[in-house]
Design a protein around this nucleic acid. Structure first.
Lengths: 116, 116
DNA sequence: CATGAATGGAACGGAACCGAAACGGTTTTG
DNA sequence: CAAAACCGTTTCGGTTCCGTTCCATTCATG
């Protein structure tokens, strides 16, 4: 089964959520950063810099810098791969999970408010 | 009636749309810029710099600069209010409407792909 | 009119991000 | 082993965005 959504509803939903994000004090992530964070938390591990760069079709430095920013926020953590020490494995954190969870709740709440 | 969405679906939806935006060649707007654009196209006119600044809880220069950027993209246009010449009325454009419409279609399409 | 309030914009310095190239550390290859 | 390939990071120069402050124009008020 799938979610049926009309264009006007979709746009209204996006607007409402965006408004909350813009107005909120929450550390505002770039579109790219948010995409990376959601991918880390939704797609199955392991996650590497190279893998994320390919999935988002961006350069590696973009991923590295995004991880710097989000690492400072404690939303993700980095660990050397003991098997292949060239790799860096990106892992989830409690803070990151809370942020993502809260974000999902906002979307759900705003979706529930949509009038048909 | 309302849209029923589970948190995991909401997050997946956001991720899929974000991925398209990040990967796409489309001129990527800031979170703020997108919120402004959607507000202009969804909320009833007239729209002024001050009004938008209050609605988004940001400073006026933020709106001015966003309008500069989106004006260069032809997504919005500015016109002096003939009644009160201090005001600037922000109006929609064909290009902006197409951009918003296309964005809504992306959300709808990704929502339809969501498995329950 | 003259004064003050309101509106949108400009100016300034600082911070964040970007693309491209180059760099160390690690593993694979020949 | 030496050389090549791979991975993530750093560096560089340039662009964009930001917050704050200040300014020109226009309207309301006495």
């Amino acid at each position: 089964m799938s979610i049926h959504l009309r264009p006007s509803q979709a746009l209204r939903l996006w607007q409402q959520v965006s408004l909350i994000e813009v107005r909120g004090k929450a550390p505002d992530l770039t579109e790219r950063q948010l995409a990376i964070l959601l991918t880390i938390y939704l797609d199955p591990p392991p996650h590497t810099v190279r893998g994320l760069a390919e999935k988002l079709d961006v350069s590696k430095p973009v991923i590295t810098r995004a991880l710097d920013t989000m690492g400072a926020l404690k939303f993700v953590s980095r660990h050397r791969d003991t098997a292949d020490r060239r790799n860096v494995l990106i892992k989830r954190t409690v803070e990151g999970a809370l942020f993502v969870e809260r974000f999902g709740d906002v979307v759900v709440a705003k979706a529930a408010e949509l009038s048909l």
